[in-house]
């Protein structure tokens, strides 16, 4: 299969790249190509111009800053998986990484591509949402920072404008007693998940839950937070929490859960509830454990 013809551009700076995206007709950014190229090959998408980001060095890198970790949008999933500082400072991201596709996909796929592509079943958007990351964007109109809560707007759609690039993602480092877990169910290892959940939970000096984030993927048009359950859990004692109940509550009121060949909406919700429960148990155990 080959994609329809296109013109190829390989700028060396992010400024130049957004200039091309703005000036050229029907232009799209190309990062690792692990989502875009299959879509082009199957002709689900056709673009006149592709702007390859591979020579834009400023988009790559992992930097530990004061209380946070910055990751360039062009950093590959494989690089993230190998990073000790991410394993240490952003464990949820490190744990989600091996769940993405296969090693041959992760060696090319980028974090910026995963987040900008915003697949409903993808792991990284759910991690970004759970950890309340900040997303740096650049367009010919300048730079802006978009909070994760405002970034994902629907099926394969985000807050980014057509001529806007994601340049980097800032992950806050959770201090104190905290635990993190991601759980998903896929028909085969490496497939996109049918349903999955991320949990980040913090326990305060008084032994009560003082921070809590639960995000869901594969259970709607894009990743989403289970805000109501989170609010209920704040201030409670870990010993009182009922993981199965939390799973069920997280599914209550979810609308537009997909139904397809692989499972009905009600089946997905049952799987989703089980994933939340598993992730909750593991994350909480880690938080209270030491």
């Amino acid at each position: 299969m080959k994609p329809a013809t296109f013109e190829y551009h390989a700028p060396t700076s992010a400024e130049e790249a957004v200039g091309l995206l703005a000036d050229l007709d029907d232009a799209k950014a190309l990062a690792g190509g692990q989502s875009l190229v299959p879509m082009l090959a199957l002709r689900l998408a056709v673009f006149e111009n592709l702007v390859d980001l591979r020579r834009v060095d400023e988009l790559r890198g992992i930097e530990t800053r004061d209380g946070s970790v910055w990751i360039g949008a062009g950093t590959t999933q494989a690089t993230i998986g190998r990073s000790e500082s991410i394993g240490l400072n952003v464990p949820l991201l490190a744990r989600a990484t091996p769940l993405i596709g296969h090693l041959q996909i992760r060696s090319r796929g980028t974090i910026g591509g995963s987040i900008a592509h915003a697949d409903a079943s993808a792991e990284y958007p759910a991690v970004a949402l759970a950890l309340d990351v900040e997303l740096d964007a650049l367009s010919p109109r300048g730079r802006r920072t978009i909070p994760a809560a405002e970034f994902f707007t629907g099926t394969w759609s985000t807050e980014l404008e057509e001529d806007e690039l994601l340049t980097g993602i800032t992950f806050p480092v959770w201090q104190g007693r905290a635990g993190f877990a991601v759980e998903e169910f896929a028909r085969r290892h490496g497939d996109f998940a049918m349903a999955g959940a991320c949990v980040a939970v913090g326990v305060g000096a008084d032994g009560r839950i003082d921070r809590c984030a639960i995000s869901l993927f594969g259970l709607g048009p894009c990743a989403r937070r289970a805000t109501e359950v989170e609010t209920e859990l704040i201030g409670t004692s870990p010993a009182d929490s009922d993981a199965d109940e939390i799973g069920r509550t997280a599914m209550a009121g979810l609308d537009s859960v997909p139904t397809d060949l692989h499972g009905s909406a009600s089946y997905r919700k049952r799987v989703g509830a089980a994933m939340v429960a598993r992730a909750w148990r593991r994350a909480l155990q880690e938080a209270v454990g030491d």
């Binding site: 299969m1 190509g33 692990q34 190229v37 090959a41 390859d52 494989a78 041959q104 996909i105």
Partner: peptide
């Protein structure tokens, strides 16, 4: 030819990649 089967895997700068999901121009 769309990234699923792995038959096309090659090493690119030492890393295993799908040769069906990379344009030759990107391998420059």
């Amino acid at each position: 030819e769309h990234g699923v089967c792995g038959a096309c895997s090659v090493l690119l700068d030492g890393e295993a990649v799908r040769a069906c999901l990379i344009f030759a121009v990107q391998a420059d």
